[in-house]
Computed example of a mutant assay.
Amino acid sequence: MWTVAVLIREGISLFEFGVTAEVFGIDRSEAGLPLVDYRVCSDGGPGRVESKHRPSVCVESTHGLEGLADADVVIVSATLPSTGNSAEHRAIREAHANGALVVSLCSGAFILAETGVLDGLSASTHWLFEDELARRFPLVDVVSANLFTDTGRVVTGAGTAAAIDTCLHVVRRELGAAAASTIAKRMVTAPLRHGGQQQFVDWPSRVDAAGTDRGDTGLAETLDWAKARLGTNLDLAALAERSALSTRQLTRRFIAQVGTTPLKWVTHQRVQRAQELLENTDLSIDQIGHDVGYASATQLREHFRALVGTTPSAYRQSFNLGA
């Protein structure tokens, strides 16, 4: 059984903690997902931990810090900015040394930084805390505005809603794209926003200065059109023509509304589709590369490794689907 242990402490933020419970704490075995041993851990627990909210809401931990020791994933949930205590630091360092994937959500990055596991690594946190994290921990390379940063054995997520992206990313890299898509569909959220996207985007108003509803000013139709044609030429000119915009206008609107550039978005969509085909079909890697729009398997491998951190062959073998 896959074990996910969440460290909570006084001043816990209920939203980020609730995301961990929604993603990892629900039995979805009927949908083909593995059972998860979901542990809520606190120093001195089991016991009640008070939230930062007023009036206060308490969360009941199920384990003490020993619950982190043999976990596959350890998540330090968001709290009032704190560097934690020595017992928490020791438990996190030991779990990391034992091979756990260590994750922080929002201000949880401060506790990870204090343990030393972020030294020399890039890390994300809520944009409000970026300067403070960089000032207090100069050995940590604080990445500005990312949704999350994955450095291999440590994943750090930004604030609030980015906890959803971070937790779904953990599911995707550990259990596969199909598992992440299943959970995202149940949560009625987007299955994939890559970590390099911005923490905040500007959504244009439908109503102009005169109070006239101008209709949908977004890119939804173009995005749907492109996702249905990943195997075709989706260069900047083709996307701009479909959107009835200049390439410069399209790029500006993509960055504002989607949080990334058009071509980076296309690459993310192609790699995600390749993940699904690797899991669920026995198509060759050459064929999958062609189907998602790459001229060769070499191109697919380059983009796949850059975004997923492994090769298409290793990914298929890991999830034992379509092999």
Rank of each mutant, 00 (worst) to 15 (best):
M1I: 12
W2S: 06
W2G: 00
T3H: 02
T3W: 04
I8G: 09
G11Q: 10
G11S: 09
I12K: 05
T20A: 13
A21D: 10
A31G: 05
G32W: 05
S42I: 05
D43K: 04
G44I: 03
R48M: 13
R54K: 06
V57T: 15
H63Q: 02
D70L: 01
D72N: 14
L80N: 08
L80W: 04
S86F: 01
R90L: 11
E94R: 10
E94G: 05
A95H: 03
H96W: 10
C106H: 03
L112W: 08
T115G: 10
G116D: 08
G116K: 15
D119I: 07
S122K: 15
T125I: 10
H126W: 05
L128V: 09
F129M: 13
F129V: 09
E132L: 11
L133T: 12
D141W: 08
L147I: 04
V154K: 05
V155W: 04
I164K: 01
G176T: 07
A178S: 13
A179N: 08
T182F: 03
A184N: 06
L192K: 12
L192H: 13
R193F: 12
G195S: 11
G195T: 06
S205F: 00
V207W: 00
G211Q: 00
T212A: 00
T217E: 08
T217C: 05
G218N: 00
L223Y: 00
L223V: 14
D224S: 14
K227L: 15
D235E: 12
D235H: 13
A238N: 08
L239G: 04
S246R: 12
S246P: 11
Q257E: 15
P262Y: 04
L263T: 15
T267E: 15
H268G: 13
R270C: 13
R273W: 02
R273I: 07
A274W: 02
N280I: 00
N280S: 15
D282Y: 04
D286W: 07
D291G: 02
V292K: 01
G293N: 06
Q299E: 14
L300I: 13
E302C: 07
F304V: 12
T311R: 10
A323V: 08
A323G: 11
